[in-house]
Measured scan of single mutants.
Amino acid sequence: QVNIAPGSLDKALNQYAAHSGFTLSVDASLTRGKQSNGLHGDYDVESGLQQLLDGSGLQVKPLGNNSWTLEP
């Protein structure tokens, strides 16, 4: 069960990665100043990332080996 409060997208993504045990490689300029609506409930990694990114204009991309990145 994930419980991440709304706020900074950077912070939300870092909390989610730490909670879910995956690696997220992101260029900080992509997420700077963006906000997230947070995340509450049970999600697989990709669904949770998509939910956190909702409205940010960013997309999640798998890199393999439980690693992910973001792209515009």
Rank of each mutant, 00 (worst) to 15 (best):
Q1I: 13
Q1A: 12
Q1H: 15
Q1R: 14
N3E: 09
N3S: 11
I4R: 00
I4K: 04
A5Y: 09
A5W: 08
A5V: 06
A5F: 09
A5S: 11
P6V: 05
G7L: 00
G7H: 02
G7A: 07
S8W: 12
S8D: 14
D10S: 10
K11I: 13
K11W: 15
A12W: 03
A12Q: 05
A12S: 06
A12N: 04
A12E: 02
L13Q: 01
L13R: 00
L13M: 03
L13E: 01
L13A: 01
N14V: 12
N14D: 12
N14P: 02
Q15T: 09
Q15R: 06
Q15P: 01
Y16L: 07
Y16H: 06
Y16M: 04
A17N: 03
A17Y: 02
A17G: 05
A17V: 08
A18V: 11
A18T: 11
A18Y: 09
A18E: 12
A18P: 03
H19L: 15
H19G: 08
S20Q: 13
S20F: 15
S20T: 10
S20G: 13
G21E: 06
G21L: 03
G21R: 07
G21T: 00
F22M: 09
T23S: 08
T23A: 08
T23D: 10
T23M: 09
L24M: 08
L24A: 05
S25I: 15
S25G: 05
S25R: 07
S25N: 13
S25K: 11
V26F: 15
V26C: 11
V26Q: 03
L30G: 04
L30K: 00
L30W: 03
L30C: 10
T31S: 02
T31K: 00
R32L: 12
G33D: 09
G33Q: 05
G33V: 01
G33M: 05
G33R: 05
K34C: 10
K34L: 13
K34F: 07
Q35N: 10
Q35V: 13
N37L: 11
G38A: 04
G38I: 02
G38Y: 01
G38M: 02
L39T: 03
L39A: 04
L39S: 02
L39P: 01
H40K: 12
H40W: 12
H40S: 12
H40C: 15
H40N: 12
G41H: 02
G41R: 01
G41C: 07
G41W: 04
D42P: 08
Y43V: 07
D44A: 06
D44F: 04
V45I: 14
S47D: 09
S47C: 13
G48L: 05
L49K: 00
L49C: 05
Q50H: 11
Q50Y: 10
Q51A: 14
Q51G: 06
Q51F: 10
L52M: 06
L53P: 02
D54S: 13
D54N: 12
D54Q: 15
D54A: 15
G55M: 05
G57F: 05
G57L: 04
L58G: 01
L58Q: 00
Q59W: 10
Q59E: 08
V60E: 04
V60L: 13
V60F: 10
K61E: 01
K61A: 06
P62S: 14
P62Q: 13
P62D: 12
P62E: 08
P62T: 10
L63W: 04
G64N: 06
G64D: 07
G64K: 02
G64L: 04
G64S: 06
N65G: 11
N65I: 08
N66L: 05
N66C: 09
N66I: 00
N66Y: 08
S67I: 14
S67N: 12
S67G: 09
W68P: 05
T69P: 04
T69L: 14
L70A: 06
E71F: 10
E71S: 07
E71N: 02
P72H: 08
